[in-house]
Every structure is written in C-alpha cells, then in structure tokens.
Nucleic acid binder design. Structure first.
Lengths: 222, 222
DNA sequence: CCAAAAGTGTTATTGATACACCCATGC
DNA sequence: GCATGGGTGTATCAATAACACTTTTGG
C-alpha cells in the first residue's frame, strides 16, 4: 500500500464484517487479534481486501468463510466508512457487513488460519483497533433494531425447537425480556411456525411441543 | 484508470448521488448527460472520484455543490455498489448517497459547468447509464420510506407555509393522498410547528394561517 | 351567491401491552 | 407432593384510519 497522497490516489478497499452468534445465553461477536502494526496485539473485526472480479457480497462471504468455516448465513451490508485517517498507513475505505450465524454451525474450535480468533460477548468487548468500535456499535444497533421486526433470528434456531427456546433467542439479541403469552401469540400469528408431532424429552417438567419453520425464508435485503 | 485485473488491484472509488427536489408538484431527480464513453449521450446520476484527504461525506457535499450550487441539504449514505462489471472500463466501486434539496435554493438554470444537467420527474426517467437504474430505484424507495416517519421533508419548505402546502409536499414525495384532518392532527401533535401571526394573501378563499418550524433540526443519521 | 380552500371531531379498528393461574411431568 | 417449565385468555390503551360539514374570503 502506498502512503503518498495524490489528488486522486486510489484508496485501498476492504470488506470488514461484524459476525454475531449466540452461545451460552449471550450475544457474541467474532474478533481477530492483529499480528502486525498498526494496532499490533489489538483486537479487530475480521476483514480483507477486495479481490479483482469479486463482488462486495462475495468478498463478505469469503471473509466469513475464512474465519468461521461457515458460508450460509444472514449477511447484510451495513455502512461504508472512509474517513481519510481511519487507517494510519494509507487511505483505506471499508464496506462493512454484519452477519448472524448459528453457533452449532461453527466448527469448534474456531478455524485457526488466523491464530488469534475469539468470540466476545458484546457487552464485554476489548478495545478495538482503527474505527472498529464505531462499526461495532453501529452493527449492534442495527441487529437489535432489525431483530424486532424481521425474522433474521430464525436462521439461528435448530431444526426443532420449543417456543421458549425461540423466545430466549429473541431476548438475548434484543436484550430485554418479553412476555411469554404475547410472544407466543405473535409468533403463532405469523403462520410461519409448524408443530412437529414430537415433544422434547427434557427434565422434570411438562414436555414442550417442538416447532419448526414452515419455509425458512431468510430476508436478504431490507 | 487501469484495465488490468490483478488479484488485489485497487479499484476506483467514486461517490455518486441521487439528488431529489420537488417542483411543479413533482418529485424530480437530477441527472447529467455523459459526454464520454462508455454510455456517451446517456443520462446518469452525478458523481465523482473520491479525492485524497476527503471523507465520503465531504465528497458527497462536493459533488452536490458542483452540480447544484447548494451545500446545506439533507444528505444520507444509501448503499455501496461494487459489482466487478458495473463499469466496463475498470473496477469501480461507488458509495451512493441521496440528497433532498429545496427547489428555491437552486440557482436557475442549473449550474452549467457540466453542460447537460437536467431535472427529471422520477416517474418519467430516461434510460440510465451503468447500474444507475438500480441505484435510483433504491434511492426512491428509501426516500419514500423515510419520508413517512421522519421529518426530512421539513428542509424543503419555505420559511412560512400553509399546512396544506406541507401536506402537498408529503403527498408528492410518498406519492399517495393523505386525509386532511388526520394530517393536521398529526403535524400539530409533533409540537414542531408554530403559528406565525400572519395569514396568506391568496385568492378567492378563506386565508390560511401560516406556520413555521420551531427549531429546524435536520435528521442526519438514522 | 358562488367558487375555492380553510378549518374542525368523533367513531371504529387495529395492534400492543399488561397481567395470573392451572397443567403435565420427573423425582 | 413439590419443583420445573409448559401452556392458556382477557381487558386496557394507544395509534391509526375513516369519514362530512361549516367558515371565510374574493369575485
């Protein structure tokens, strides 16, 4: 990369992702530890330079796959950041995306081409490199806003699940408790849920009906 | 610009704008006629390459000012388009914005550094160069969605106006009629409007109260 | 007195919220 | 029989949508 600034110097173009998942009852984001300067040793959100012949969405999927091994996910363009001094080395603009992937799809431990990759609960994030704190906040706000009125949460559920599991998932993401009766009413009213015949085999309580989604249609754009 | 594709070739980065205004009862967008290939003679949305040291927002304001003479406007980043073949010459990604400016602020006729600049009603647009049709559609959808629940329309009004003028402005933008009584109720309920003492001096009918905005606070981000 | 736009309230519908008790099971 | 989570219905409130007539002015 080039540090001379000419009038129309071509900036570097990266695609950076805020990748969310839910595990252990917490909303978590994937971070990578930087090996090189600047910000060596700091955590940052995963990303990479845009390659020739690759669309922005494809680049996002590639970065996603490199870091998590997962390809099929909810993925949405977030915002493009390009302040002239956001990278101290050279002009770099970044198209950011956010993704939401099911914990169970991840090959544990996290794929390790990049040695230091880790999931952090979003309310316990370390200091982030570059302007990644800003990007992260933006992504969290968008995810929470979107979760309330769309069905992006669906992709996170296992094939069969209890309504209480689904409610828990919503509560973790939007970070507030929901009323059980109202929740069930609303969910069933969507017509997207279908009873499976079976019930869970859990512990010392009444077994719950297991549901599945009628047609798992992920919203791709807003 | 460079037509060789290497693995990490730096793409060109432009900032393109869909600039809206309202005049003669119509929602219009500003287009420029391309002088050069590709798409010579076609209409396109205004834009320009990002300059060194300039933020994305600053570039948008610059393009805006170059084409319209106007600087203070509602401006919002829309989406970033970067399909590999969207420009036949070379890889160019574009960060798009949409703007909404008051017709009265424009120096008529439209500034003519670029000879062929014209306003087109959005329901009578010509064929557009590149992927600009897609960008335009996206911008129109976003503008309409946003107009319904935000106050971006305010910046389009003159200092004093009748409530019926304000209603007409909304109707033009969202492209559907509104109920007069419900509209007035809602508007007055916001608390943002203030009666001026004066009334309009119009024609053969009961003179209307003129209103102004209490504090003209433009929404800058969502 | 006619044309033209200003101005004004009430009702119905819908969607969102608040809220408490009984049920089926394993131990 | 008790602890655990599953499962259910109703009343209230707020926001939205539908809807028609009288008023003031100029010509």
């Amino acid at each position: 990369m080039n540090t001379n600034y000419k009038a129309y110097e071509l900036p570097g173009v990266t695609v950076d992702l805020v990748i969310f998942t839910v595990s252990e009852g917490l909303l978590k984001a994937l971070l990578v530890k930087r090996a090189e300067e600047p910000f060596a040793g700091s955590w940052s959100i995963p990303g990479g330079f845009l390659k020739a012949g690759e669309s922005l969405d494809e680049a996002a999927v590639r970065v996603m796959h490199d870091k998590t091994g997962v390809k099929e996910v909810y993925l949405e363009q977030l915002y493009t950041f390009g302040d002239p001094d956001r990278d101290p080395r050279a002009r770099v603009i970044t198209i950011t995306y956010f993704a939401l992937i099911p914990w169970k799809n991840l090959m544990q431990p996290a794929s390790s081409k990049v040695a230091d990759v880790a999931w952090f609960p979003v309310d316990g994030l370390p200091t982030l490199a570059f302007d990644h704190k800003k990007i992260m906040n933006y992504a969290i706000a968008r995810l929470r806003a979107k979760a309330s009125y769309s069905n992006i949460v669906y992709g996170l559920m296992p094939e069969k699940f209890r309504l209480s599991d689904l409610q828990k998932m919503y509560e973790i993401i939007i970070n507030k408790p929901l009323d059980k009766r109202n929740f069930r009413k609303r969910m069933l009213a969507t017509g997207l849920l279908q009873e499976t015949g079976s019930r869970d085999i859990a512990g010392a309580h009444r077994p719950a009906m297991l549901y599945k989604f009628k047609k798992l249609k992920l919203t791709v754009l807003d």
